[in-house]
Amino acid sequence: MEARTIPVVLVLDTGDGDEEYAEEQLQQLIAELSELDLDSIDRVTQGPTPPGSRSTEAVQLGALILDLGGSGALLPALAAVVQDWLNRRRSGSIRLKISEDEIELTGVSDEVGQRALEEFVRRHGD
């Protein structure tokens, strides 16, 4: 029997519309995500816009599909890397989507946002 995979759609929105800056930020994020033991990190460069996306262009510039492998055990580490990355920039946002469940993280972490992220991870973690 083949192990199920857990694809996570990650969409980066730098909030400023500067394509060059968005690409630079995405490359930095990919470098940090590469430190995790993900099965794959793929860029979304064409095809339909994921539900909830603001525009096709934004998705093409800042969307990734991450494969966590056969369990959600890496989801807490992924969430921590993403939140830390955003906190260091203090701007922009990242949406994480698993199936129809989605959460938007920002560079301003508060108690309510942290609880929402913990609940999201709990729903999809191992």
Rank of each mutant, 00 (worst) to 15 (best):
A3H: 07
A3S: 09
R4D: 03
P7L: 08
P7W: 07
V8S: 00
V8I: 10
V9T: 15
V11I: 11
V11S: 10
T14D: 07
T14E: 09
D18T: 05
E19M: 02
E19G: 08
E19A: 15
A22M: 03
E23V: 11
E24W: 06
L26C: 12
Q27P: 00
Q27C: 02
Q28N: 14
L33W: 05
E35T: 08
L36M: 12
L36R: 13
D37N: 14
D37R: 09
L38W: 08
I41P: 00
D42H: 12
R43A: 10
P48Q: 12
P51S: 05
P51L: 06
S55A: 03
E57T: 15
Q60P: 02
Q60W: 12
Q60V: 08
Q60R: 15
Q60G: 14
L61W: 05
G62H: 01
D67F: 06
G69Y: 00
G70Y: 14
G70Q: 13
S71K: 11
A73K: 10
L74T: 04
L74Q: 11
L74N: 03
P76V: 03
W85E: 02
N87G: 06
R88H: 13
S91P: 01
S93N: 12
I94Q: 02
L96P: 00
I98L: 04
V108E: 11
S109G: 03
D110M: 12
D110N: 15
E111S: 04
V112I: 11
G113A: 12
Q114N: 13
Q114M: 10
R115D: 10
A116I: 00
L117P: 01
E118S: 13
E119H: 10
E119I: 07
F120S: 02
H124Y: 03
D126A: 13
